[in-house]
Nucleic acid binder design. Structure first.
Length: 278
DNA sequence: AAACTCTACAACCGCCTATCT
DNA sequence: GAGATAGGCGGTTGTAGAGTT
């Protein structure tokens, strides 16, 4: 007797999500908030399992996600946190607002692991690799100048630097975390909260073809004014999932917009345009 | 231009844990 | 306290697109 499946899999759709499915899921969550994932597919009219919906939302559709490659600083943080926490991706992700565990895990497996090995560092232990496991060029380096400072020692110093940077008193990221926000604690979207689209990011990875241009036809319940704003922003290119990275509170009574704590307001043109519009 | 290989990442699977009854 | 259930996590797989032959 195996474990019961999380849901009835017969007749359920698998594989990449379509724009239509994304639209339904976003619509449902913006209307109802995050609740009982098991019930979401039925209520949202999706032929998916609840788990799949949760994953799609948390890893791809959530409005506070940053898209694109990890910055050098984020990468350093991941390396350092991995040295401390191991493969606890969700814990690592909680220190990097706007990044998901899946994203970090993928980045680790495809980029950082290789990079560390190339530098002669064991990605598992974060210690220098034994000589016989070093990449060829590295072995040659060691033969030529065994005493010279290697990349691995510079990486070790990088890790130390990051450790120092992680001082909560000084690090703005840690400040954000200490102020009560981390990606583990993403606030539920309430009707008075809106998502806003930023300028397209040149460094962003290829956006899922299935998810582009959703927002142009997206039906924001009770948010007519928001669509007006989106249409007014001249940098809005209609790319929804790859560039939704700002989340703001809108107080309709006071006609006031405030950033949700933890959201990085580093895209001044957007912020300024928004405040002008309001 | 076609076939093949590699890479990146979205999505799935199964297990674990927390919570509820 | 035990069993059931839902949510969360980490490992793995599938696949599309890019690069190479």
């Amino acid at each position: 007797m195996g474990r019961q499946p999380c849901c009835e899999k017969v007749g359920l759709k698998k594989g990449p999500w379509t724009a239509e499915e994304d639209k339904r899921l976003i619509n449902f969550i913006l209307t109802n908030g995050q609740c009982c994932w098991r019930a979401v597919p039925k209520l949202a009219g999706l032929l998916r399992c609840g788990k799949s919906c949760r994953l799609r939302w948390t890893n791809y559709l959530r409005p506070d996600l940053k898209r694109g490659l990890l910055s050098e600083y984020e990468e350093k943080m991941v390396i350092d946190l991995h040295a401390q926490l191991g493969n606890r991706w969700s814990k690592i992700a909680s220190h990097l607002p706007g990044r998901t565990d899946n994203e970090i895990k993928n980045h680790w497996n495809t980029h950082i692991k290789k990079k560390l090995r190339k530098m002669g560092i064991d990605p598992l232990t974060h210690k220098p690799l034994p000589a016989d496991q070093l990449p060829k060029e590295k072995q040659e380096d060691q033969q030529v100048s065994p005493s010279s400072e290697t990349e691995s020692s510079s990486m070790e110093s990088t890790i130390t630097e990051v450790n120092e940077e992680l001082n909560p008193d000084e690090d703005p990221l840690m400040e954000v975390i200490n102020n009560g926000f981390c990606t583990d604690e993403v606030p539920l979207i309430e009707p008075h909260e809106i998502s806003l689209v930023s300028a397209p990011c040149s460094s962003s990875s290829t956006p899922s073809s299935s998810s582009s241009s959703i927002i142009q036809e997206f039906d924001f319940p009770n948010f007519d004014w928001q669509c007006d704003i989106l249409n007014s922003l001249d940098f809005w290119d209609g790319d929804f999932s790859s560039s939704l990275d700002l989340l703001i509170n809108y107080d309709s009574d006071r006609n006031n917009v405030t950033p949700i704590p933890g959201i990085v307001w580093d895209q001044e043109p957007i912020r300024d345009s928004l405040f002008e519009l309001l």
